[in-house]
Amino acid sequence: MDTVGIRNIGIYVPPEIKDSARIAKLSGIPEDVIRDKFGIVHVHEARQYETVSYMGIEAARKALDGFDPKNLDLVVYCGSEFKDYYLFNCAASIQHEIGAVNANAFEIHSLCSAGVYSLKVLKSMMLCDDSINHVLLVSSSKETQIINYKNHNSRFMFNFGDGAAAVLLEKGMDKNVILETHMISDGQFSEDVAVFGVGCRNFKEGEDIKCSDKYLDVPNINSMKERLDPVTLNNFNEVIAESVKKSGYENKDIGFIAPIFMKRSILENILGRYNLTEENSFVLEEFGHCQSADAFISLSEGRKKGRLKDGDIAVLLGAGTGYTWAATAVRWG
């Protein structure tokens, strides 16, 4: 019983799409730049009723696929902090709506690296607690609603798309086994990106939040880029290599990389370091950045396309503003 495996993955993306032409129109950035530099063909756009919890519930039901939710011991939400409501327990809502009446529920937040790192947290909990045998991990994002396309300081977030992923974990499963994780945190970036109009630092009783303060913002994009660009690629490669090393494997054993959204040129750079090609990964150009659901979408799509094969050492890769980089290795099949 010293293993935890991924029993199933469920993905939900809204049917409506926002293509590169529409993003170009909203932002004033040429469409060829959106497609070639930003790496977006289209993203999925949630309708009003497709809330963060709604999408998470839909993904959860797909992940369960015949598994009785009454047998879940834990439901964990690790997605966007922009949820249905401010200070809202999304995990509890999902637990209730899917009928997981015997499960506890809580949330893990680490922005866009939370999904990858939550696998480590939950694996550790499951192996340390005899009463936790089946866990449902859910990530969901509708952060497209808090992007101001006229604010080009936040242009690196114009690739956001809506969607959700859910992962059913099972203790004692010798299939799709979760191996080891590595993370790098660099808190110098902690205040570079935020919704600066919401929170206790600037809360004044009786004062309404200005509309412009409800959007994600990057007050000094040039400063962030000057500090971030020299380290981010190295940090991605370090967390990949260290997660594999901790798992008892070598870089040459990597067969698949399931990345967070990144433009093709960066992904190709990373893949090349491990003698891999796009056939060993998945480019999220028709999904966009769905927060910490990205790596699970990549894993699911890679499996559907036959790129993720039994016996592969797959590495799930994430990064979150703040700034954190994380990777978790999985022995697939």
Rank of each mutant, 00 (worst) to 15 (best):
S212G: 05
S212Q: 09
K214I: 04
K214C: 12
K214T: 15
K214H: 07
K214F: 04
L216M: 15
L216T: 08
L216K: 07
D217F: 01
D217S: 09
D217C: 09
V218Y: 06
V218I: 14
V218H: 05
V218P: 05
P219Q: 07
P219E: 08
P219A: 02
N220W: 05
N220P: 02
I221C: 06
N222E: 15
S223P: 03
M224V: 11
M224W: 10
M224H: 08
M224C: 09
M224T: 14
K225T: 10
E226W: 13
E226C: 11
R227Y: 10
L228N: 08
D229R: 07
D229V: 14
P230Y: 11
P230A: 08
T232D: 08
T232H: 14
L233P: 00
L233I: 14
N234D: 13
N235V: 04
F236K: 04
F236W: 09
F236P: 02
N237K: 14
E238L: 10
V239D: 05
V239W: 06
V239T: 09
I240P: 00
I240W: 02
I240C: 01
I240N: 00
I240F: 01
A241V: 05
E242V: 05
E242Q: 10
E242L: 05
S243L: 04
V244G: 00
K245F: 04
K246R: 15
K246E: 02
K246C: 01
S247P: 04
G248Q: 04
G248I: 07
Y249G: 00
E250I: 00
E250M: 07
N251A: 03
K252Y: 06
D253V: 01
D253N: 06
D253C: 00
I254H: 01
I254C: 04
F256D: 07
I257W: 01
I257R: 06
I257N: 06
A258F: 07
A258V: 03
P259A: 10
P259T: 11
I260A: 10
I260C: 13
F261G: 12
F261A: 12
F261I: 11
M262R: 03
M262L: 15
M262H: 11
M262F: 08
K263I: 12
K263W: 12
K263S: 12
K263T: 11
R264C: 10
R264W: 15
R264H: 13
S265F: 13
S265E: 15
L267K: 08
E268R: 10
E268H: 12
N269D: 14
N269Y: 07
I270S: 00
